[in-house]
Design a protein around this nucleic acid. Structure first.
Length: 466
RNA sequence: GGAGAGGUGGCCGAGCGGUCGAAGGCGCUCGCCUGCUAAGCGAGUAGGGGGUAACCCCCCCUCGAGGGUUCAAAUCCCUCCCUCUCCGCCA
């Protein structure tokens, strides 16, 4: 896309008006609790049944020690138990269907007999339900198998660098960090935020706000050209959306739950603040069957994001690098499974294009299998050079979650051979706080000002801060 | 927050406790017919799970969700969720 020149107004990109690509089912948020129906598997259950050794290998790559043989055994038990219950049910039903045509004693006898069958069925069904519950408890902990091309290793440091771009500036003056710059230039106020909200909060002020909206505007236009529909989604969601995206049950410590004070207690509203619009965007098509030729469906979601940052005590305590609340534009794609790996590369390409247009040196890393989180099969992070820290720090993340989320959320596409699960992918277009840091620190000048990157000037309305 | 009305297949919309997974219509698919199109005629057309090497086929579950009554529930009872209308409050 052509970025507007400073002397031209930013161009307006039309987005497909009213072209909603699928028919909407009647909304029913409570249809199927998590883990019911065929999706009681979190990953494809045929992996357990037909290739248990592959499953074991997959878990080993992620450094997980789960009892695959026990899972397989319980799976067999639950199926045979349910088959047994169902045959009783079939007998009971066929007898019940004959009852209306019977008279007198024959009728009474049949009713008594059917009653016995019904009781037997109830008992067998309870056994099957119990086995299902036990199976699910184990199966729910199985993460998405890592893609063969995902890097080996267990922790952040095991990520493999696959690319570097840009030239790290050689500063001939003392470099200031974003906190100092932000305070001096009237862009970031941490101290007052601490008084108002506590640690890990910030006020963005003045030019920072204009830069934020310039960034958002710039990428929404860029993404509009690529077929992304802009979305401002809900930031409060139900548990189902968090479960469906894989944040529950694993990362529930990172999520704020909201409620209302009731005496000494907090009464939950059963709503949770999203840590990323990925959650609300993924859940957007929950339970739907999409048309195959409508794929990929791409969305660009702008939202505030909320994270408790539990377990991050002492990490990145200065400034706004790691805060409880920040704004972000996220890309999300519902994609044909055969094209999701191309889509993944494309999302990364867009992320790079954005960072490049801002003239920020960065590197791309392939995240290690053991550090992927439960939903991603492969993940790229872009790490921008942060001069004050003299190292690369994560500013975007881009994952192919294959069918992990779509299985949980029951999002499929229609084919002649039946309905199949779509693949879902997500990637950060702009994480405002961190990108702001990268811009400020990389483009700071000896006189304490910050030069606005060319691409952003038309959107920001100024070319220098300070 | 108060009062009321509703949630049935891709969509609309019927449905006395007893072959109802569900009439009818629309849409879609495939045939036939037609100079082309339109119209007309015929057939098909929900999802999930299990049995089977697989197909045919068979069985179970699903009428917002969960539970209950009954030999038998879309239909009766309870709880919850959601949508809509009116009132109140509100950016």
């Amino acid at each position: 896309m052509g970025v507007a020149h400073p002397d031209q107004p930013a161009r307006i990109v039309p987005v497909r008006p009213g072209s909603f690509p699928v028919s909407l089912p009647r909304f029913s948020a409570d249809r199927d609790g998590p883990g019911r129906g065929y999706h009681h598997g979190m990953i494809d259950i045929t992996l357990l049944r037909e290739r248990p050794d592959d499953l074991k290998a997959s878990l080993a790559r992620r450094g997980l020690d789960l009892d695959v043989d026990l899972m397989a055994q319980i799976d067999r038990d639950r199926r045979s138990t349910r088959a047994n219950a169902e045959s009783m049910r079939a007998e009971q039903k066929s007898l019940s269907r004959r009852i209306p045509r019977l008279e007198g004693e024959a009728r009474q006898g049949a009713i008594a007999e059917a009653g016995k069958l019904a009781a037997g069925y109830r008992s067998a069904l309870a056994d099957a339900d119990e086995l299902d519950r036990r199976f699910r408890e184990l199966w729910i902990t199985v993460p998405n198998p890592a893609h063969p091309s995902a890097a080996d290793g267990m922790v952040e440091e095991d990520a493999v660098e696959i690319k570097r771009w840009g030239t790290v500036r050689d500063f001939d003056f003392p470099v200031k960090d974003h906190r100092e710059l932000g305070a001096e230039l009237g862009m970031i106020d941490i101290e007052r935020a601490a008084r108002v909200s506590g640690s890990r909060f910030g006020y963005l002020t003045g030019p920072a706000v204009m830069i934020e909206f310039a960034l958002v505007r710039m990428v929404l236009e860029m993404l509009g050209d690529r077929g992304f529909t802009p979305v401002v989604p809900p930031v409060l969601v139900r548990e189902e959306a968090l479960f469906g995206t894989g944040f529950f049950p694993d990362d529930d410590q990172q999520v704020y739950e909201v409620g209302v004070t009731a005496g000494e207690e907090l009464r939950s509203d059963n709503l949770y603040l999203v840590g990323t619009s990925e959650v609300s965007l993924a859940a957007y098509h929950t339970g739907e069957v999409l048309e195959e030729d409508a794929l990929p469906l791409r969305y660009a979601g702008f939202s505030s994001c909320f994270r408790r940052e539990a377990g991050a005590h002492g990490k990145d305590t200065a400034g706004i690098f790691r805060v409880h609340q920040f704004d972000k534009v996220d890309m999300f794609s519902f994609c044909h499974p055969e094209r999701s790996w191309d889509e993944h590369e494309m999302l990364l390409g867009i992320e790079e294009q954005i960072v490049q247009s801002l003239d920020i040196p960065y590197r791309v890393v392939n995240v290690a299998a053991g550090d992927l989180g439960s939903s991603a099969a492969k993940k790229y992070d872009i790490e921008a050079w942060i001069p004050s820290q003299e190292r690369y720090r994560e500013i975007t993340s881009c994952s192919n979650t294959t069918d992990f989320q779509s299985r949980r959320l029951r999002i499929r596409y229609r084919t002649d051979g039946g309905n199949r699960l779509v693949h879902t992918l997500n990637g950060t277009a702009v994480a405002v706080g961190r990108l702001l840091i990268a811009i400020m620190e990389n483009h700071q000048q000896a006189d304490g000002s910050v030069v606005v990157p060319d691409a952003l000037r038309a959107y920001a309305g100024f070319d220098r801060i300070g």
